[in-house]
């Protein structure tokens, strides 16, 4: 299982700042389709609702790489197998997080053994089962979680983020 180093190709590109340009080549990255366009000059960010996957695409504890709200913001979609606060789907066990470390923006890797996101930069770690709470680390916020919705067909949409994503002063650019 390569969860600890998932989608290495996409990751390396991201560190060099080229993920957007190469996203098409990284087949596992789900870009989603936009249902709504962001408007300008509102008090809060207007988030797009992007389809990330269908419930049927997910296997328990196997993270799927996604990007939200746009191609430059990598994340993972994850079915935990057990309901958690903030989880969606019939079992309340589907969650999605940004995988940019909120300390200095290094790319997190997922440890499927204890279901945490871990940072090679300075060893911060975040709990996938506790709303992205920082278990231990240097970041001053917990891991941004994507707000999800599942429709009748089992399609999973991301339509919000609960914390500022690393590397952007507005969650939608």
């Amino acid at each position: 299982m390569k969860c600890n180093r998932l989608v290495d190709a996409g990751r390396r590109q991201f560190l060099r700042g080229g993920l957007g340009a190469t996203a098409g080549a990284a087949a596992s990255v789900v870009m989603g389709t936009s249902e709504a366009r962001a408007e300008r000059a509102l008090a809060r960010v207007d988030y797009p609702a992007n389809r990330l996957a269908n419930l049927a695409d997910l296997a328990v504890n196997a993270p799927m790489d996604v990007a939200y709200p746009d191609a430059d913001s990598p994340g993972v979609l994850l079915k935990l197998g057990q309901g958690v606060e903030g989880g969606v789907g019939p079992n309340g066990d589907v969650v999605a997080y940004s995988v940019l470390c909120p300390h200095k923006g290094w790319m997190l890797s997922y440890n499927d053994a204890d279901r945490t996101f871990n940072c090679p930069g300075h060893h911060s770690r975040f709990d996938a089962e506790a709303g992205g709470q920082q278990v231990w680390g240097h970041a001053t916020n917990n891991l941004p979680q994507f707000v999800l919705r599942v429709d009748d067909a089992g399609d999973i949409y991301a339509e919000g983020v609960d914390e500022l994503i690393y590397g952007r002063l507005s969650n939608t650019l």
Partner: peptide, 18 residues
């Protein structure tokens, strides 16, 4: 250009706590 994503170790980002 802050309309673009800033990459790791960027000086051009600050967290809400800052």
């Amino acid at each position: 250009d802050l309309s673009e994503q800033q990459y790791q170790d960027s000086p051009a980002w600050y967290a809400p706590s800052m």
